[in-house]
Amino acid sequence: MGYYEERVESHLVWAILVTLFCCLPFGIVAIVHAAQVDGKLSAGDYEGAQEYSDKAKNWCIASMVCGVIWMIIYGSVKL
């Protein structure tokens, strides 16, 4: 296990959290990107891994933002 491999985050925790705790299918996309991160890492491509790490993070954030937007829309329509 190299020193640099610990440096690139796969954001798997948040990917699973948004899939099982949130509600939208975006979580699956985040898990696929997390898989790409670890795939690139084991192939030794650290730049590629970093790129996919950022993508995975963005999907997690997108999913959370969608959840919040849904709450606001639902709340403002039903209240």
């Binding site: 899939t19 099982l20 705790f21 949130c22 509600c23 939208l24 299918p25 979580g27 969608c66 959840g67 849904w70 709450m71 639902y74 709340g75 039903k78 209240l79």
Partner: peptide, 21 residues
């Protein structure tokens, strides 16, 4: 309490992996 349901379940009627969490 007033709590928003899962959007996937609300829109499609199917359960998603996060329903019931």
């Amino acid at each position: 309490i007033f709590y928003p349901p899962c959007p996937f379940c609300y829109l499609t009627g199917f359960y998603c992996p996060g329903c019931g969490t």
